[in-house]
């Protein structure tokens, strides 16, 4: 195989790679939004993906949220009881869970489970020419592969976050009651007085954005898989890492905007 006579660049242009990646993600998002707005969506496929990506992530998200709520309560309870502030335990658990930990932990666990599944699935389709087969038939891979997963993630991550919020706050109650002997009335009264509906809604908005990030990054990485199994493994790792970093960064940015 001959090569063109072009001198290779000595230093990789990190800026160009960053903007190339960001631009690729935005183009994929634009393509998907265009298809969604023009209603070229198969509801049955969205539901199938929602079941596979969302419902099957429920047990692991429930478990992690329960233990997180419990550990916050454990740490807060010891301090609060020592300073006579046990009436703040429920509120602090609910406040932290609804605003930050519920959506963020759900997003991170979802990125690890569903994001990896999306990338591995699409990556395998790329290396076995299935995605090329779609294009060869005149069918947009974005329409068939990306749009259902994007919608499924945007719908299911907030739903999972509701579960995570409930389980986290309730887990906190169990530890507060058993460990610090805080009464049920005091705990739930504290929850009601410190955490409001606006915190809950803001958390769900964050969750929807995290869902979109996991789907977009997962699909984008999967669709640019190269080689065989090693290539699929490499993009899968990259997708999870990128999703988690973006979730942390966007969580901070959204907290700045939503809780001003």
């Amino acid at each position: 195989m001959r090569t063109a006579g072009v001198r290779p660049s000595l230093f990789p242009d990190i800026g160009a790679r960053f903007f190339g990646y960001a631009g690729g993600l935005m183009l994929l998002l634009w393509d998907a939004l265009r298809l969604i707005v023009t209603l070229r969506v198969k509801p049955s496929e969205v539901l199938r993906q929602a079941y596979f990506l969302g419902v099957q992530s429920w047990p692991i998200i429930t478990l992690t949220s329960a233990f997180t709520g419990m550990v916050i309560s454990l740490e807060a309870a010891a301090q609060a009881v020592a300073y006579g502030l046990s009436q703040l335990i429920g509120g602090s658990v609910a406040f932290g869970t609804l605003r930050e930990l519920g959506p963020m932990l759900t997003g991170i666990v979802f990125a690890g489970r569903a994001g990896a599944a999306i990338t591995a699935s699409l990556g395998s389709m790329v290396v076995t020419e299935q995605v090329e087969a779609l294009s060869s038939m005149g069918v947009s891979p974005t329409k068939v592969l990306v749009v259902p997963r994007l919608l499924a993630c945007i719908i299911t991550v907030p739903m999972l976050t509701v579960f995570a919020d409930i389980v986290g706050v309730y887990g906190g109650f169990i530890v507060a009651a058993l460990h610090a002997h805080v009464s049920s009335y005091v705990y739930w009264q504290s929850v009601q007085s410190l955490a409001g509906m606006s915190d809950f809604i803001a958390g769900l908005i964050k969750a929807a954005v995290f869902g979109a990030v996991v789907a977009l990054v997962g699909c984008y990485e999967g669709l640019r898989a190269k080689g065989g199994a090693e290539g699929v493994g490499s993009v899968t790792t990259q997708a999870v890492v990128t999703s988690i970093i973006l979730i942390f960064a966007l969580n901070f940015a959204m907290s700045l905007v939503l809780f001003k």
């Binding site: 076995t128 020419e129 299935q130 090329e132 087969a133 294009s135 005149g138």
Partner: peptide, 20 residues
């Protein structure tokens, strides 16, 4: 416009590329 061209073609891939 390429989509319209592709609709007139059938492509049988080396490894079949069936949707698994």
């Amino acid at each position: 416009e390429l989509i319209e061209v592709r609709k007139k073609m059938g492509f049988a891939f080396q490894y079949s590329a069936l949707f698994d």
